[in-house]
Simulated scan of single mutants.
Amino acid sequence: MSKKISIITVLIVMFFHTVNVHAEKFRYAEIFNPKQNKVEKVIQVNTELHGMVVEWIKNINGIYGKNDPLTDDGYAVKIPLEPAVKVHGKYLNALVNEVYIIIPENDPPFFMIFEDENRLCCFPFTGDIDLLSRVLEFNLKTNR
């Protein structure tokens, strides 16, 4: 009888004892190849990549002037920003939680950013492709 009571007591304690588990939400950057229509590489966003991209978008200094910026060559790099970044500038005033860096083969690279109201805006890329390639451990060079 005491064996049954001790087993039941252990089961009750196990059942009612809660364990708080805090899962860290990982965000991943994706390098997409439009020619092959596939994601070439997935990389966990680290503080170096996050800080680099935030610095670049805070220094946007113009609007991308091409009428149809989409291309079917080169690479597109999707970088989520967690936490989201509030940018107050002449050309961009938005809470940015995701940045796309488009790197066409024959045109200059540019940012694609969705503003707060999901309005797509394109801006010239002011960063360093070589540095981005090193951080992503992927050669983003194109035939320019």
Score class of each variant (00 low, 15 high):
120 L>R: 07
75 Y>I: 00
60 I>S: 10
81 L>K: 00
116 D>E: 04
81 L>H: 00
94 A>I: 01
126 T>A: 14
25 K>F: 02
118 N>G: 02
134 R>Q: 09
132 L>D: 07
48 E>P: 02
21 V>N: 07
52 M>T: 10
132 L>E: 11
79 I>E: 13
29 A>F: 08
106 N>I: 11
75 Y>K: 00
66 K>A: 08
139 N>T: 15
54 V>A: 06
129 I>D: 06
119 R>P: 00
66 K>N: 03
117 E>H: 01
103 I>C: 08
112 M>S: 10
94 A>D: 05
102 I>G: 06
124 P>Y: 02
80 P>T: 14
127 G>D: 14
27 R>F: 06
77 V>I: 15
92 L>G: 01
135 V>D: 00
29 A>D: 10
54 V>R: 07
81 L>W: 00
28 Y>T: 14
43 I>Y: 12
133 S>V: 06
43 I>W: 05
101 I>Q: 08
76 A>C: 04
26 F>N: 12
109 P>D: 07
140 L>N: 07
63 I>E: 07
76 A>N: 05
99 V>L: 04
69 P>Y: 15
66 K>I: 15
46 N>S: 13
84 A>S: 06
73 D>G: 03
130 D>K: 03
55 E>F: 13
31 I>P: 12
122 C>F: 12
98 E>W: 02
26 F>P: 02
63 I>A: 02
51 G>P: 15
46 N>G: 09
103 I>P: 09
135 V>W: 01
89 G>F: 11
49 L>V: 05
44 Q>S: 08
103 I>H: 12
97 N>S: 12
37 N>E: 11
31 I>W: 14
116 D>P: 01
116 D>H: 01
104 P>F: 07
29 A>Y: 11
87 V>Q: 14
29 A>L: 06
60 I>K: 14
76 A>T: 09
